[in-house]
Simulated scan of single mutants.
Amino acid sequence: MKQATIAARLYAAQRPALVDYAASILGDRAKAEDIVQDAWISFASIEDQNGIQNPERFLRRMIRNLAIDALRRTRRYDRIAGGDMEEAERTVQDNAPGTEQALIARQELARVQRALARLPERQRLAIEMHRIGRYKLREIAERLGVSIPFVHGLIVKGLAACDDYRDE
C-alpha cells in the first residue's frame, strides 16, 4: 500500500478519536483540531512509513508532543504577557466616564462657556489664552499690549467672575 494511502486511511478512520485525545491534553477543541491536522501533515510527509511498526501509536505520540509543545508556548506567553488577555479585558475597570458623568461634564462646560461669554473681550481672551492655549503671562501681555501684572489681574478677576456666573 502507498504511504500516502496509509496516512490518509489512518487519518480518516481515527480523526475524531485523535481530536478527542488532543483536546484532553489541551483543553481546547479548536486547538486540538489544529494539532491533529499538523500531526497528520507531518506524518504524511514521512518518506518511509512502512518502517513504522504501529502507525496509530506513532501518530498519537506526534499529537501528544505537539499538544505539549503548544501548552508550553501558551504558558510561556502567559508568563511574559502577564496572563490571559481575555480575562484581563473582562476584569480591568473601564475608566471611561459613564453616561451620567458625561452629561454632568457637558452641562458644566456649557455653564463655563456662558460665563466666559459674559466677560469683556480682553478678559475672556486672556483667560482662554492662559487656560486653554497654555500661554505664559508674558506672552499674553505682549499679545494684548499690556503689562504682566495687568494680565494677571485680568485672569484672576475673570476667573472669579466666571465662578460667580457659573454658580447662578
Rank of each mutant, 00 (worst) to 15 (best):
R72V: 05
Q53R: 14
A32W: 08
R57C: 04
S24N: 11
Y11G: 07
I148Y: 05
G51W: 02
I63L: 03
Q53S: 04
T91C: 00
Y77R: 12
I68F: 06
I6T: 13
V151K: 03
R122V: 08
Q123F: 02
A161K: 09
M1I: 13
D48C: 07
D78S: 12
L109P: 00
P120W: 11
D78G: 11
R76S: 14
A105Q: 14
Q53K: 11
A4K: 11
I25D: 03
R15W: 07
R29N: 05
R57L: 10
L10F: 11
F43S: 01
T99V: 07
G27P: 09
K31V: 00
L59I: 06
R124A: 15
P120Y: 11
F58Y: 15
L59R: 04
A22R: 10
W40R: 00
A8F: 06
P55E: 09
I6W: 02
V19C: 08
Q113C: 00
W40D: 08
A110W: 03
G27R: 13
L71W: 02
R166Q: 03
N50C: 10
T5P: 00
D28Q: 03
A13L: 09
Q3P: 03
L144P: 01
D163P: 03
D78W: 15
E128Q: 15
R138L: 08
A160P: 05
M62S: 10
L71R: 04
K136D: 13
S147F: 06
A141M: 09
S42I: 00
G145D: 10
A17P: 03
L18K: 09
D48A: 10
E86M: 05
F150C: 05
A141Q: 12
E86G: 09
N54I: 08
L26G: 01
G98Q: 08
L10Y: 15
Y77L: 10
T5K: 13
L66P: 00
D167P: 00
D78A: 14
M129Q: 11
N50T: 13
A105D: 14
L116I: 06
A160W: 03
Y21F: 15
S42W: 02
C162E: 04
D94Y: 12
Q101Y: 02
L18M: 14
R118Y: 04
A8I: 03
D48Y: 05
V156W: 10
G158Q: 11
H152N: 13
L26D: 00
R79L: 12
K136R: 15
Y135L: 06
